[in-house]
Structures are given as C-alpha cells and as structure tokens.
Design a binder for these strands. Structure first.
Lengths: 207, 207
DNA sequence: CACAAACTTGAGGCAACCCTCAGATTCGTA
DNA sequence: TACGAATCTGAGGGTTGCCTCAAGTTTGTG
C-alpha cells in the first residue's frame, strides 16, 4: 500500500540531492501561487537551477506534481481525523468541509489538484483515494445520525469541491470570505430537515 | 433600439458584409464549443476567411466578443420575463435558475462570459447589467413572498453562477445532469424555512 | 591527484498563438 | 470597360512555453 516513498532508489550525489530539494521547495511555492500549470521555467528559476536540471529530476510535469502534491494533501488527514473524532456527527461533517476549503483557499495547487484529481499522476490520485475512505465515513456518520439528508452521496462532495474551487478562485482577490457564505447556504440545504425530493432520473437522452 | 445592427457605421461593401456575417456565425459556433479564448485562427478558418480578414472586421478579441455575446445573452431576457410572469414567486425564482444554467450548459462561451462579465468588453458588461435589474426583481419578489430566505442577496447569485460554471464544465462530458442535482441541494438551502444564521465576519452582502 | 561517472547547463528546435502589412484581388461606379 | 478605393490574403516576426542533448562541471572514490 504505502510502500516507502521513493525509498529503495539509488543514492543521489550530494549536489543532486541538494538541487532536488531546492526544486521541491520552489515547486511547492510556485504551484501554490500560480496553479498546476505554472511554467516549469519559473520553478527552475526560483530554485536557482537550470531548466535542464528540473527535467533531470522530474522528466514530466506529472512526476513533479506527484512529488509535491501528496505532501500537501497530508494536511487533509488531520482534518478528516478531527472530523471523525468530533462528538457531533453534523458538526464533524461541517467542520470537515470548512477545513477542506480553507486549505483549498490557501493553496492554489491544492485547489486545482482536488478538482482534477482523477486525471492526475497516479501518486496524486492515490493520495486522493486513500483519503476518500475517511471522507465516506464522515458522510455516513452524519447521515445515519439523521442530521445529513439521506440522499447525499459521497460523489456529491466531488461536485461541491468543483463548485467551491471556482468560488474560491474568483473571489480570492476581492472578497476572500465569499466561500464561507456560500458554504453556509449549501449546508442549510444538506440538513435532513431541509431535504426536498431531488429531480428524478434523467430519461431525456434525446431532446 | 437595436434598429439596424451596427447602426451609424459606413455601409460595407457586399463582400465585406458577407464575410462579416460568416465570421459572426463561425465565432458563435467556435466560442460555444471551445470557450472565450478559442484561437482566432480557428474562427477564421471555420468562416472560410483569412486571419487578416478577421482582424479587419474585429481589431481585438474583445471587439469580436462584443459582437457575439450580447446576442447570445438575449436568450436570457425570455427567461427572466418568464420568471417574473410566473404566478408563484418561488417557482419563478427556481425556474429562472434552471433556465439560466441550462443556457450555460449549452454554450461554453456564455458560461465563461457570465462568470467573467466584469472584466469583459463594455458591450458585454452592459448586456449583463441591463439584465441584472430584472434578476434583482425576481429575487426580491421571492423574498418578500416569504419563500426565499431573507439574507439572500443578488450578489449571492453571482457566486452561484461561479460555482455552477465549474460544475457544468467538469461534468459536461461524463454526467451532464450533475448540475441539476447540485442546484436542487442548493435550492433547499435557499428556502426561507431552511435558513440558519450565516457566519459573521462580513455582515451583509453589499458589494 | 586523477579520472570516470554523475550531474548541470542553456542554447536551440518545436509548436501554438498573437498580430501586422505590402501586395494581390474584388467591387462598384462613371 | 476601366480604374481607384475597399477589401482580402498569408507569409512572417514576436511571444511564451515545452522538451532535448552535446558539451562543460562537479563529485567522490581509488
């Protein structure tokens, strides 16, 4: 499952190891600032290294993302753990969402990564899928407690993440609290007592 | 008001007028398919015209958008009118949202235009602002009827449009009905009886 | 110290897209 | 029909970003 990171690799020469670290630091910063398709040249420059060296260590952009993002996503683990530990299932669920989106708002790369997680490097999707188990438990717990509406499915959370990613992106500069207000509206629709029947199945394949 | 199109301009030569029309048709199609920053070369090619001709008629991308988008947005007028005419204020409000997002889902350029409307060509923002008056009335009507929660402001609709634009974009290929489900959840949070106090921090949503 | 292997460098070839402009073409009128 | 003005064309110069590779530099071991 977890293997041991990049363990078992060949030992790097000292200068190479140093450069690799500088690249990871720079990449973390630049990606957080400019998103997942920040120019690789920027990252190399910020690391004080040539573009060729970047390609030496990370032959593709995905390889680089795979080295940076899972680490960033580790922050999510604390949040899911706290949510599960919360005595009130609904408060745990709501707190989880708040923590998740706070992270997204702080890190542009995380925001995009969560949105695109299924088309990304395997390392990244793995990190996503691993965490998803806990998320399902958070949802299930709030639902069986009768607080979260029964027809809310884990995949609906993916949709919410999509929605929030855009709200965060658009409002970040001018009114960075916007997402909290939006989330409050949405949460009010997720309470069990607020539930109205959802639109029926989509049998209109043609129009 | 709309009298004769680009009224006040000098009369175009016949071939020029024909090319201009072909460009508008092509642009409408290509923009709907590929979004607001579709390559201008694609549009010229689809119109069967050279890139130079495109620049002849529309010296900037914004000029082209300004000629295409307001027309597309006219479809919104019907929707707002229908919403205001609906006997049930809540159903009018909900129907308006459904119509709006249906349009967004059908036209990629409209989707992006609505989310970016404030950084776009004046023609486009004007079209937006004009329509916004009616939208405010739709909201106000549902609110004073006691159906829409009292703390929902017109600017919250902008946020919802941001959110939806991403949901539509991400799900369009694989599950194009996703946005309806999401909207249903959200609407349940907008009903007056579902309202819980919003987070403090920024009091009301006066922009 | 010497030297091979490991590593770095950055110019340079690609590709996509933007926009321009001198010369060729077409229109419409006299 | 002729001809000037209006219009069209598309090669070409500029930009940004991707990725490669031959030549130079550093490391660490014998």
């Amino acid at each position: 499952m977890m293997g041991g990171m990049a363990a078992g690799s060949k030992p790097l020469r000292s200068d190479a190891a140093r450069n690799r670290d500088k690249l990871l630091v720079a990449a973390t910063q630049v990606l957080a600032e400019r998103g997942l398709d920040a120019p690789l040249e920027h990252i190399a420059r910020r690391a004080g290294v040539s573009i060729g060296t970047l390609y030496n260590h990370f032959p593709t952009r995905e390889a680089l993302l795979g080295a940076v993002l899972p680490q960033r996503m580790a922050a999510l683990d604390e949040i899911t753990a706290a949510a599960l530990a919360h005595p009130d299932p609904w408060a745990g669920f709501a707190g989880f969402l708040e923590g998740l989106f706070t992270l997204q708002a702080e890190d542009h790369s995380l925001n995009e990564a969560l949105t695109q997680s299924f088309s990304l490097a395997t390392d990244v999707s793995q990190a996503c899928h691993r965490g998803f188990r806990d998320v399902e438990r958070i949802i299930e717990r709030a639902r069986t407690a009768g607080r979260l509406r029964a027809d809310f499915a884990p995949t609906d959370l993916v949709t919410l993440i999509w929605a929030m990613s855009q709200v965060i992106r658009e409002s970040m500069e001018t009114a960075p609290d916007t997402w909290r207000r939006f989330l409050a509206f949405f949460l009010d629709g997720l309470r069990a007592e607020a539930a109205h029947p959802l639109p029926q199945g989509h049998r209109s394949a043609d129009r």
